[in-house]
Design a protein around this nucleic acid. Structure first.
Length: 746
DNA sequence: ATAGGGTTAG
């Protein structure tokens, strides 16, 4: 190569006049000026193996003036933009030097950017082309810009392209139509995608594949499978890409049987099984529960890439088989960020936030992969679960410092973290700092306000969301109904509930019924709640009966409580909460015989109560306490603080509420001490001795706070002049000056 | 001289 290059460099310059000597730029050429097509310099371009080589040829072409021949320049552009070694930045520099690029040249640079990490450039150059190129974009241009728009999910841009190509009479080109189907599918607009698809007269396999993929990614796997059957009727032979889509549909449907059938179909029809298809099969097996099939396939695979390994790792981790997951992780040829994320997310989603954070710390120490948006979403979620605000704040700063794009996923996680750690104001600050918010961001903020008992604010935000033309979904309604329930807004809740389907097109699900039963039940409208349950179009779930049972506890209705709890236990025999609520009702009404009968049933059935656990973060370290725990290094100090609190409470005439004893104790001999041993009290006592008086004490508890702890915490907030934020399983309690934000309504 | 569809982590 180098020798040839030297030879060419020493050839005398062409007789073509140089750019600077030309009075006017050479006229643009379209496919007809191949005068220099066989010039030795151009054949050199094809032999280049590095940008350095290309630059040498580029220099030569500038020197001889060959560069100012449109055909020759486009050859150079093609190599510098599309060769595997090429650099797009360099291609762009070359492009900017060309006085009047021809259509081909524009297309090449638009194509190169369309499949680059920065497709926006593709669209910008397209705009430039419309202004500067005397030719209109052609049938090659549109597939490229549509690809760029797909990657960016730039719906409006794509709409404009669609209009333009109709005007240019290009709307019967099969490549363009297929690109359009893919584009609308990427934007999640299945109707428009299907509209284009149906109008394609002679659909080829790519048309079908594009539509199948659109259905799968749009969350409509049945549609994808129906199309797969449709292909057969139309005698279009499926290929490997089709089968990847069909397998993805099985994966979404969790249909192992059908997935296995698809695998045998692939074999029977001799569809070539490449690595991508194997990976799709592997993923299907894991997600549908065919673990042995997955292992067998993985062992059989001759070629494996990062997808194969990550799929195996994620499969084990999600099932809680952490040892196996770790083994896969260590065996992988290289651990990219996806591998780390698979581990972190599995721990986080399996309710092991501490383990998730430990992996995150290891990632930071090792520094062999850079945390991305997914890593940070998981880390924030783990912080939120723990109520670890210091860590959460650190992640927020990290995002800002690293200049990581604050997308809607991250915004949602940040808002969730701040509200779950007790700082609604900070969550609102994040919320209002960004213009574009999707339905999940709005829903998270509404849910955050709900959790803090700010029901009015949550409903106001819901109205603002509608004004901003963001369509509420099922999650939004769960959260806004939850807000009504926590604040006792019966009429508002009822109105919202009955507007869901007619006004907003969201079909109420069992969880919405549960919220509504909760709203009605809490305010004593037990009859209306029962009527609602009877009118449910689906079988009432455990959560619905649980809501009714909770309301019965609040209003001391034994008959209804017994009905509700028996229905609840039919559906969910291991539901400890049902027994606890029922025994609370009996205890509240002094029916001690029934309490002990119930406790015997629980013991005989071997039901174990989830141990109460409270945690508090002090200087970035999360301290955990179990009921009656004395493992903490400062245990002695904590207990003497609790004695001091008990004495001060007694001196102001406080009498412990015995009925709450039954909520949390397991063994009878613990009864005497049980009240002072509740985990939230230990955590609060530890907060009092270890944190500056100006700092609020933030405690997270895994169960519902008991009535006595609630009363005691109110008194502590007054006696010690401390702000205490207690997050329990259901909501936040913000104690200050002897009052709680829940207004004793929880 | 140029084109369209696919697999992992939230």
């Amino acid at each position: 190569m180098t020798r040839e290059l030297m030879a060419t460099l020493s050839t005398p310059p062409l007789s073509l006049p140089r750019r600077s000597n030309l009075p006017t730029p050479p006229s643009p050429t379209v496919n007809n000026d191949r005068y220099f097509a066989n010039h030795p310099t151009l054949s050199l371009i094809n032999q280049c193996t590095s940008t350095k080589h290309l630059k040498q040829v580029h220099a030569q072409m500038l020197r001889t003036g060959l560069f100012f021949d449109a055909f020759s320049a486009s050859k150079l552009i093609t190599a510098s933009a599309l060769e595997p070694f090429s650099s797009l930045d360099y291609a762009r520099q070359v492009f900017d030097q060309i006085p009047q690029p021809n259509l081909y040249t524009w297309n090449i640079i638009i194509r190169a950017y369309a499949s680059s990490p920065n497709p926006t450039q593709s669209l910008l150059i397209f705009l430039q082309m419309l202004h500067q190129c005397e030719h209109f974009p052609d049938k090659f241009t549109f597939p490229f810009v549509l690809k760029a728009a797909s990657g960016l999910k730039a719906f409006r841009a794509g709409r404009v392209f669609h209009g333009m190509l109709i005007k240019a009479s290009l709307s019967s080109d099969l490549f363009i139509l297929n690109s359009l189907v893919h584009f609308y599918g990427s934007c999640g607009d299945l109707d428009l995608a299907y509209g284009v698809f149906m109008k394609i007269p002679r659909k080829d396999v790519v048309s079908w594949n594009s539509m199948i993929t659109a259905f799968v990614q749009g969350g409509y796997p049945e549609g994808a499978l129906e199309l797969f059957r449709g292909m057969e009727k139309e005698n279009v032979k499926p290929n490997d890409v089709t089968m990847v889509g069909v397998l993805a549909a099985c994966t979404k449907k969790l249909d192992l049987e059908f997935g296995r059938w698809v695998c045998s179909y692939i074999e029977r029809n001799e569809i070539s099984v490449n690595l991508t298809l194997s990976n799709a099969m592997l993923d299907m097996y894991w997600k549908c529960g065919g673990i042995e099939d997955a292992k067998r396939l993985f062992d059989k695979m001759l070629e494996k890439d990062i997808f194969s390994w990550t799929t195996m790792l994620d499969g084990y981790a999600k099932l809680g088989k952490y040892d196996e997951a770790q083994r896969v992780f260590d065996a992988m040829p290289c651990q990219d960020i996806a591998a780390w994320n698979a581990l972190i997310s599995a721990y986080e989603q399996n309710g092991k936030p501490k383990e998730a954070l430990a992996i995150f710390r290891e990632l930071q120490l090792r520094k062999d992969a850079k945390p991305d948006e997914v890593t940070l979403v998981c880390t924030l979620s783990a912080s939120a679960q723990l109520g670890a605000m210091d860590l959460g704040r650190w992640v927020h700063v990290y995002i800002e410092k690293q200049g990581i794009n604050l997308n809607c996923h991250l915004m949602t996680s940040l808002i969730d973290m701040y509200t779950k750690c007790g700082d609604v104001e900070k969550a609102l600050e994040v919320f209002y700092s960004v213009e574009r918010k999707d339905v999940f961001v709005w829903s998270a903020m509404i849910g955050g306000l709900a959790m803090h008992g700010r029901g009015r604010a949550a409903i106001d935000l819901f109205s603002k969301m509608l004004e901003a033309k963001v369509k509420p979904n099922s999650v939004t309604f769960t959260n806004v109904l939850c807000a009504c329930s926590h604040t006792g807004l019966v009429n508002e809740g009822r109105t919202l509930f009955y507007q869901m389907e007619p006004v907003h097109g969201v079909v109420p699900e069992d969880k919405h019924y549960a919220c509504m039963v909760d709203i009605l039940g809490r305010s004593g409208l037990l009859e209306e709640a029962v009527e609602l349950i009877e009118k449910m179009p689906m079988v009432p779930t455990a959560s619905v009966w649980g809501a009714l049972l909770g309301a019965c506890r609040l209003h001391g209705n034994i008959e209804l409580a017994e009905q509700a709890s028996s229905r609840l236990l039919e559906l969910d025999p291991g539901n400890h909460g049902a027994y606890v609520l029922l025994s609370n009702i009996y205890a509240k009404l002094g029916k001690w015989d029934r309490v002990s009968r119930l406790r015997k049933v629980m013991r005989d059935s071997g039901l174990k109560k989830e141990p109460g656990c409270s945690s508090i973060e002090v200087n970035g370290i999360v301290h955990e306490f179990l009921a009656g725990d004395n493992c903490h290094p400062l245990s002695k100090e904590i207990y003497s603080k609790l004695d001091e609190i008990a004495a001060r409470l007694k001196s102001i005439g406080y009498v412990p509420n015995k009925s709450h004893l039954l909520q949390l104790i397991e063994e009878d001999d613990m009864k005497d001490h049980a009240l002072s041993l509740h985990s939230e009290k230990l955590a609060i006592a530890f907060g009092l001795i270890s944190m500056a008086p100006s700092q609020p004490i933030r405690v997270v508890k895994n169960l519902r706070v008991c009535g006595d702890c609630h009363s005691v915490t109110k008194l502590i907030s007054k006696l010690y002049g401390r702000e205490i934020l207690l997050r329990d399983r259901y909501r936040f309690h913000h104690f200050r000056g002897g009052h709680c934000s829940c207004m004793d309504y929880w």
